[in-house]
Computed example of a mutant assay.
Amino acid sequence: MDSRVRHITKSFTWRVIASATTFSLTLAFFGKAEIAMASWLTLLETSIKIAIYYFHERIWFKLSTKLSHKMRHIAKALTWRVIASGTTFILALLLFGGHKDALEKATWIALIESVLKMALYYGHEEIWYRINLGLDDRQKENAA
C-alpha cells in the first residue's frame, strides 16, 4: 500500500480531533451565540489545514533524521503547532475582527490550542507509530 494513503488517513483523523478542539475553544471564548461563526472557523480551518498537514507529513516522511521515534514525534508536533496555531489565529482574527476583544480572544484560542493540541498530536503520532497502514513498502525496503 502506498504511504500517501497513510498520510491522507492520518490527515483526516488528526483533523477530526483538531477541529473538534478548535470548535470547542471558539465557543468557550466567543460564546454559544457565535455558534455559526465557530462553525465557519472550524470549516475553513479544516479545509485549509488538511492540505497543509498533508504536505507537512510528506516532508517529514522524506526527511532522514537520526532522532528516536519519540523525539521525532516531538519535533513534528512543534513544527506543526507553529504552522497550525498561526493559521487558527489568523482565521479567528479575520472572522471575528468586528467582535469586542477579537485580538485578545484569538490570541487566547491560539495559545491554549497550542498546548492542548501538542499533547493530542503527540498521542496521535504514538498511535500511528503502531499502525502499519501504508508502511508495507518502507518495511520491505528496510528488510532488503
Rank of each mutant, 00 (worst) to 15 (best):
W60D: 03
T65D: 13
K140V: 07
I83Y: 12
Y122K: 02
R15M: 06
W14A: 08
L78R: 08
R81W: 15
I35S: 05
R138E: 11
V115D: 02
H56Y: 14
H69N: 15
R4K: 09
I8S: 14
S39P: 00
T21C: 13
F29Q: 07
G134D: 04
V16L: 09
S47M: 11
S114W: 01
I83G: 12
D101G: 02
Y53P: 13
A144E: 01
V5C: 15
F12Q: 13
S64D: 09
S47A: 11
V82Y: 05
F23P: 03
L133M: 11
F30G: 14
T88D: 03
T79S: 13
G123F: 05
H99D: 10
V82M: 07
E141Y: 07
H99Y: 06
S19W: 00
L103P: 01
E34S: 14
L25G: 00
A143K: 09
H73C: 07
W60G: 08
F29R: 05
T42R: 04
A143G: 00
I74T: 11
H73A: 14
T87I: 12
W80F: 08
M37T: 10
L78V: 15
I74G: 02
L25M: 07
L41F: 07
A20V: 11
A28C: 07
W40A: 04
E104L: 05
H69F: 15
L116C: 00
I35W: 10
S68D: 10
S19V: 05
A119R: 04
F30W: 15
I48M: 12
L78Y: 14
A75Q: 12
M118V: 01
G97N: 09
I109M: 03
T21A: 13
S68M: 04
G134A: 03
S39E: 00
M37H: 07
A143S: 07
F29E: 08
F23S: 06
S39T: 14
G86S: 09
A33F: 12
A75Y: 11
M1C: 05
L135H: 01
K140S: 10
L111G: 10
A106H: 02
R130C: 02
K70W: 13
F61W: 15
K10H: 11
S114C: 04
V82E: 08
S3D: 08
E141Q: 11
L63M: 15
L116V: 04
L95G: 00
K76A: 04
Y121W: 04
G123Q: 04
R81Y: 12
I8F: 13
L78E: 12
I127Y: 10
A36Q: 06
L44P: 09
Y129N: 09
T107P: 00
D136Q: 11
M1T: 04
G98V: 00
L135V: 02
K49G: 10
S85Y: 05
L63W: 15
G98C: 03
H73D: 13
H73R: 13
S114T: 05
E45A: 08
S64P: 01
A28Y: 12
R130T: 02
T22V: 15
S3E: 11
F55Q: 05
L135Y: 02
S68K: 08
L116S: 04
A18Q: 03
H124W: 04
I8W: 07
S3H: 08
F12I: 11
T46F: 06
S68H: 08
L91S: 01
E104F: 06
Y121P: 05
R15W: 01
A36R: 14
S24T: 13
A51M: 14
L135I: 02
T42L: 03
L25T: 03
D2A: 15
